[in-house]
Design a protein around this nucleic acid. Structure first.
Length: 490
RNA sequence: GGCGCCUUCGUCUAGUGGUCAAGGACGCCGCCCUCUCAAGGCGGAGAUCACGGGUUCGAAUCCCGUAGGCGCUACCA
């Protein structure tokens, strides 16, 4: 059987779009699943859209996602170069071959004439706006002369009239187009660069791509590609046009309505595992109820015939949930570098806390967060003393006798020698018993004193992490501050 | 405007002629667990399967039409 080869062929416009990530992922998964090769090819045939550093950024992001390719600009391969601007001679050669065969032709029309033509056709309410094949009627002598005089030209595809172009798509089955609706596409621009259509087909053939898996926006130009394969006498790849990713209002996913760059999500604290997992499920499912996957699981399970036809809204809420799921699956050890990283970026950068302390914090916050950076907000009291105390919680839990109880409690803690969680618990139990009150009468104001909040990890974890000394300082500070707050304490 | 693609709970989806007055997940609500918040467990609300016609004993599933959405319609990709 023929080797499976797929490719991800982005144009370097500055960053990797999440839609591009999904496309790259499906290409990667399909190749890996079938013991094939996955190729990265840069489609930089539009000089006006060149963005400095975009290729490096793309490669960096793909690597971050673990979507490793077998061949590509930086890793090489047998069909290089993998950057289209380095292959200009190849496209030129094939464009001219098509001219020779009569399937393409020189066109010397100026943009002015083209614009006028378009206007006229629109005014006439013609069903389709397209080139009138004017230059196809040029005689050989005329062409020779214009060429000699160095008149700028493009090469256009000679689309046949009254033809039905039919092709098969794995996802959409048979798709048909009337050739009369297809424009004589420019293949080679006047600056000598190819358009997408030519470069794409030539490279896919030369690089022996077996499956073209790309976004649905390409479906309507596929008949042009089909024509090119036929004119060159090349075997067509299998086509699979993926459903689009959508904004909440169901328009095509765009920058205006939120983040679209993978690096944005990365910067916001999304794990690559969550992003991959989420994006994989946008348009594909394994056929059962499972929703949690790592990349390797996806390789095993993926198949093109379980890809949907309709566009999918990019739902942040679900992504967030998945991020939480992936965080929960990670060990404290794995999460440590993430926390350190967040700390480095924060106002706590100069704190210099030891790993053991940080690991205890992670352990206690592990199931309470969807982002690692939430440890710094929801658990800010691990990094600084509370300056304020939730007034609702004061109202509810801070009684007249609370200061006295807390003082008793910390003096009991004083007696403990290198206490562990359990020791704090025993100490608290015994004080509660001595005072003839429920444990929660102590726990709630204690938590408030230590963290300023009413929510958080188990109280004994909190005590243990903070330690005797710090507990004492915080409790005393809380008693001081809260009693001067003049809130109605009952 | 033309051409193409699409259409099941708010969202992602299962479903390929009878087991579907439609199952799961996110989100939302409630209960349990519990020192709080989470996590977890249990339960609830939520889709007359875009609409209208057919075919069939029987349709979310097949056919036709309509509507809506989206994409393409560049010397952009």
């Amino acid at each position: 059987m023929k080797q499976i080869r797929t490719r991800f062929a982005p144009s370097p416009t500055g960053y990797l779009h999440v839609g591009g990530l999904r496309t790259a992922l499906y290409n990667f998964l399909f190749a890996k699943k079938n013991n094939g090769k996955f190729v990265l090819r840069i489609e930089d045939t539009d000089r006006s859209r060149y963005v400095e550093g975009a290729v490096e950024n793309l490669i960096e992001t793909l690597k971050w996602c673990n979507l490793t390719y077998d061949e590509g600009p930086d890793v090489g391969g047998p069909f290089g170069p993998y950057i289209q601007s380095l292959r200009l001679e190849i496209y030129r050669k094939y464009a001219h071959e098509l001219v020779q065969k009569g399937h393409a032709y020189y066109c010397f029309c100026t943009t002015e004439r083209l614009e006028k033509l378009r206007q006229k056709q629109i005014e006439q309410r013609l069903p389709q706006v397209k080139y009138d094949k004017y230059c196809l009627r040029l005689s050989e002598e005329e062409i020779e002369e214009k060429l000699e005089q160095k008149e700028p030209y493009v090469i256009r595809l000679n689309v046949p009239e009254n033809n039905v172009i039919r092709f098969n798509d794995v996802i959409r089955e048979t798709v048909e187009f009337d050739s009369n609706n297809i424009d004589d596409q420019i293949l080679l621009k006047s600056d000598g660069y190819p358009t997408y259509h030519l470069a794409n087909v030539v490279d896919d053939h030369l690089m022996q791509i077996s499956h073209v898996i790309r976004g649905e926006e390409w479906l309507s130009s596929t008949p042009k590609h089909v024509l090119l394969y036929e004119y060159f006498g090349w075997e067509k790849p299998v086509f699979a046009h993926l459903p689009l990713l959508l904004n909440p209002d169901r328009s095509k996913l765009s920058k205006r309505q939120g983040d679209v760059a993978v690096e944005d999500y990365r910067a916001k604290g999304y794990l690559k595992e969550a992003l991959i997992n989420f994006v994989a499920l946008l348009g594909w499912n394994p056929g059962n109820d499972r929703e949690f996957f790592y990349l390797d699981d996806l390789i095993n399970l993926f198949s093109l015939d379980r890809v949907n036809k309709s566009g999918a809204v990019f739902d942040l809420k679900k992504l967030q949930w998945l991020n939480g799921e992936h965080i929960r699956k990670k060990s404290v050890e794995e999460l440590l570098p993430f926390l350190k990283d967040e700390l480095k970026k924060s106002k706590y950068a100069s704190l210099n806390l030891c790993d053991d302390y940080l690991k205890l914090i992670i352990e206690s916050m592990h199931e309470r967060i969807e982002f690692v950076h939430e440890i710094l907000t929801k658990g800010y009291y691990f990094f600084q003393r509370p300056e304020e105390y939730e007034s609702q919680s004061i109202q509810k839990h801070w009684k007249k006798e609370t200061p006295e109880h807390l003082r008793l409690l910390i003096s009991e803690f004083e007696n403990l020698d290198e206490p562990h969680k359990h020791d704090y618990e025993l100490a608290l139990n015994s004080i509660a018993e001595k005072l003839q009150i429920s444990k929660s009468k102590l726990i709630h104001p204690l938590r408030l004193s230590l963290s300023g909040m009413s929510a958080g990890p188990g109280i004994f974890d909190l005590l243990y992490i903070l330690g005797k000394e710090e507990i004492k300082i915080r409790v005393e500070a809380a008693i001081e501050k809260i009693s001067t707050m003049q809130i109605n304490i009952t």
